[in-house]
Design a protein around this nucleic acid. Structure first.
Lengths: 332, 332
DNA sequence: CTGAAAGCGCTTACAG
DNA sequence: CTGAAAGCGCTTACAG
């Protein structure tokens, strides 16, 4: 391995001078610098990042903690994070936790020691005390897609409002028996989406049928079975609001497998606007989340924190959603 | 930050002893070790990985270089890599290159210096000279999903055979005018899938219609437009073999948008077997690739190389594919 | 502007 | 079994 000493020898200067010439932050004689640069090129010198990090106390690395990269909302977020990380000379370490708190804590313990300058969590829960602790210790942290109140920086969407509007659209188009497929209501995110649904119905004077609240999470999280069971019991809604696009896609499949038509018999609205959602049949009406931008914003914020402004007060950035009207909803 | 010195002081021993007690590789008096462990717990000591890495010359980190995590085949691969990395005490750095060679080279230069103990590439091309250089320098490298011949370890599927069999199935079910949507034929992978298609037709005495070879790659890579154009020109195949599931999904949409039916008018076979592929309409007949296992195998191999066995000769591991028959193909 | 020295936090021969 | 010392490859006050 080529070290700074090799470069120094070849350029006929001391290692200190090489270091300074490379850093660019300190005046170095122009001719000396040229000699150094020449040696760097000739030797293909690459500074050892570990040594640098050890000395400087930073690594230009951030950690991204997500439940599971196979959940199709996360690739876009991850891509957004990585793009701005790269632009700023950072690299990103990827960690899947499957929502397992112990695994997450292990990761955090491991990464947080000089390994990583800051952490982005897409896994926040109300019981995530370790995130609060990190924050208290002044370790740079930002949340994405989920928030923990005012205590820690986050980039999210307005889940309540988005689903309120989606369900209101269903009501405006004449639907009266509206089913919801919702995710783990231990997550604020899904509670908010549920509340948006409930208040939209209530404010229109429509009933909330308990049997039409389909809680679907974990392994079997795409709503297919839940909807199939509902339909087979003879409970037929005229619309389904799915709290995620995969659940909407599962619901469409279930409706069709029961011999019914989307949207003629049952309208369906999703939440996410994944790439495929416009290609399925019927093209899905859904709430579009700016996932990529959520990733870029979170990374930008985190890098700003790493680069100094640690003690500003936390900001909750609320990104805009949009209801994309396609063909899975019928005017009744 | 708590260092090894703090632990040493509290336990009343030297830093060397703390290091040895923690490593477990060297005999340490039982009572001394207990005192050390006690101090470690009390202080919540976490060794500084940078210092450790600097001294030991390894970081227990691997880099995963992929074209784009938003391409739906890569999340499963990445997940496989990360799962076995974690089991073995490694973390993974994620790099998206968009198939851009310069970006890839930048990443490699940056990571390869002590940053990372080995690299998994899902981006290999024939012109990827930097990968060969890495290999020559004895730097641990393994390829996944694409290979570069016998020179470097790889975990792949038999693309030729898989698509030969898929197309033969189409022929056996009575199809005669079979279109292909293929990807960038600068990639061996797609060339092999194309050859499988061509030889299946030829060996059945069926013509290969040049206008039915749809090359689709880059931005607009889902086949929708290509198929739509073909159909609008009045060229109507009785089957389409798509060299990836996203292309199959785009093709289905295009066929439907032209007022035709899948599979009654046109049968469609894909390649990948993504999660959604069984939920779309019609459920897609497709070649299933074990993406997750390809990730785990690649990581296992790489970690073995990092842990010593660097100079064994390269292995090309060929994973099994399977044609999953669903409803997008009709017996004619 | 430049060099010698100290130090970041570890590990590991070297003695004992 | 244990401690003191050297060293991994950098950066940065401290002198000059």
């Amino acid at each position: 391995m080529i070290t700074i000493k090799d470069v120094a020898k070849r350029a006929g200067v001391s290692p200190s001078t090489v270091s300074r010439a490379l850093s660019g932050k300190v005046p170095v004689d122009r001719e000396t610098r040229d000699r150094v640069m020449e040696a760097v090129r000739a030797l293909k010198y690459q500074p050892n990042i570990l040594a640098k990090g050890l000395k400087e106390g930073r690594t230009n690395t951030i950690g991204l903690i997500i439940p599971n990269i196979c959940n199709p909302i996360f690739p876009a977020v991850a891509r957004g994070v990585e793009d701005v990380a790269r632009e700023n000379g950072f690299t990103v370490v990827l960690c899947n936790t499957d929502e397992d708190m112990d695994m997450e804590r292990n990761y955090v313990e491991k990464l947080q020691n000089r390994w990583v300058d800051g952490l982005i969590f897409a896994t926040a829960r109300e019981e995530s005390r370790h995130i609060l602790e990190l924050k208290q210790r002044n370790f740079p942290v930002v949340l994405v897609a989920r928030h923990m109140g005012e205590a820690v920086d986050a980039v999210v969407v307005d889940n309540y409002k988005s689903s309120f509007e989606a369900v209101r659209y269903l009501i405006e188009t004449g639907h009266k028996r509206i089913c919801i497929i919702v995710g783990d209501r231990d997550l604020i995110l899904y509670r908010e989406r549920f509340e948006g649904y409930r208040h939209a119905l209530e404010s229109a004077g429509l009933p909330v049928y308990p049997e039409m609240i389909l809680d679907v999470s974990g392994r079997d999280d795409n709503g297919y079975n839940a909807v199939k069971n509902l339909l087979e019991k003879g409970i037929i809604p005229d619309a389904i609001f799915a709290a995620s696009d995969p659940r909407a896609i599962g619901a469409i499949r279930a409706v069709k497998d029961c011999g019914l038509n989307v949207p003629d018999d049952i309208s369906i609205v999703g939440f996410d606007d994944l790439d495929i959602s416009s290609y399925i049949d019927p093209p899905l009406t859904t709430v579009s989340q700016p996932l990529y931008e959520m990733g870029t914003q979170a990374a930008r914020r985190l890098i700003a924190m790493v680069n100094g402004s640690k003690d500003e007060k936390p900001q909750i950035k609320i990104m805009k959603t949009r209801l994309i009207k396609r063909k899975s909803v019928k005017q009744r």
